[in-house]
Amino acid sequence: MEKSRDIRGKYLVTTDPEEKFFLSAQQRCTFVWENTGNGLQISHIHISNPIGELKIAEDEAFPDTMGKMASHYMKEEILRLTSDRKLSVCDVNGSLMFLQLSDVMFISALGKETVVRTLTDCIFAKNSIKELAQQTQDCFVMTHRSYLVNPQYITAIRRYAITMQDGTELPVPRKKYDEIRRQILSV
């Protein structure tokens, strides 16, 4: 049985499009995953910054302030993305269901009802897409007036269509393509 595994990569950090300034920098990161009784869990995160971008704080012998800030940010993002937030859905039979937000691929409007799609299930709900959008506002992207999409499950985006992990293709309006693409890339 494998005890731990390192996963290394690079990512691009940019400021929020709403900010009045722009900053972009590439960082390297390493995640060490350990196989525990509860499955794989992250046991260590290391983030490296290019030396030219490191900030040395007063009385600091080694430039690690920026690294600590980046590590804190990354841990907060992982917590946000893997939290136990739930989506409450009233199915067509009147049962109230609680779904992990991280398990939902997308939500689509179907007349007055909605369809909540996970990798393994399709739930017909009485909730309007507007009600479900309020519950998913900081995690999902409204790619069309009839679709709320979880960016974690997007495998491709091209002009006027998004491909989901299960192969489903969802439309993207021509007039909003650039805006929606930016939203997806910033989540």
Rank of each mutant, 00 (worst) to 15 (best):
G9V: 00
M105P: 01
L132Y: 05
Q135F: 03
S43I: 12
K130N: 15
S4G: 04
R8M: 08
N127T: 09
N49I: 15
M74R: 04
S95W: 08
Q134Y: 01
M164C: 09
S83G: 05
I47D: 00
H72F: 02
Y147F: 07
S128T: 14
Y160C: 14
E169S: 13
H144R: 01
L185G: 11
V89G: 12
Y177H: 15
Q152K: 14
G67P: 00
N49V: 08
Q26N: 12
F106V: 04
R8A: 14
G37R: 10
A125Y: 01
A70D: 00
R85S: 11
T168H: 12
R159Y: 02
C122P: 03
Y177S: 11
H72N: 08
G52T: 14
V92M: 02
T118I: 07
T82H: 13
D138V: 02
S102I: 04
G9F: 00
Y147H: 10
L23M: 04
I157R: 08
G94C: 06
S186D: 07
V13E: 07
P171K: 09
D138N: 07
R117E: 10
F21L: 04
V89I: 15
G9T: 03
T155D: 11
V115I: 11
A156C: 07
E18F: 07
D16W: 05
R8D: 06
E34Q: 11
E131M: 00
S128Y: 00
G67T: 06
V141P: 02
Y153C: 09
M66T: 14
Y160A: 12
L40R: 05
F21R: 07
Q165T: 12
H44F: 05
K112E: 10
S146L: 00
P151T: 01
T82S: 15
K126L: 10
L185N: 12
K68Y: 03
G39A: 04
R145W: 05
A125L: 07
Q137L: 05
Y177W: 10
L79Q: 11
C122R: 09
L132M: 10
E18K: 13
E34C: 10
K86W: 02
I51M: 14
I78P: 00
F31D: 01
L96V: 15
E19S: 10
D6W: 04
K75C: 13
C122D: 02
R8T: 11
N38S: 13
V172E: 14
I107H: 04
L101T: 10
D178N: 10
K55P: 01
S83M: 03
I129G: 06
E60V: 09
C139W: 05
Y153T: 14
Y177Q: 06
V92N: 05
L110I: 14
Y160R: 12
L87T: 10
A156W: 05
E60D: 01
E19H: 12
W33D: 08
M1G: 13
I45D: 00
R145Y: 02
T136H: 04
A61I: 03
N150P: 03
F106D: 01
D91E: 02
I162P: 12
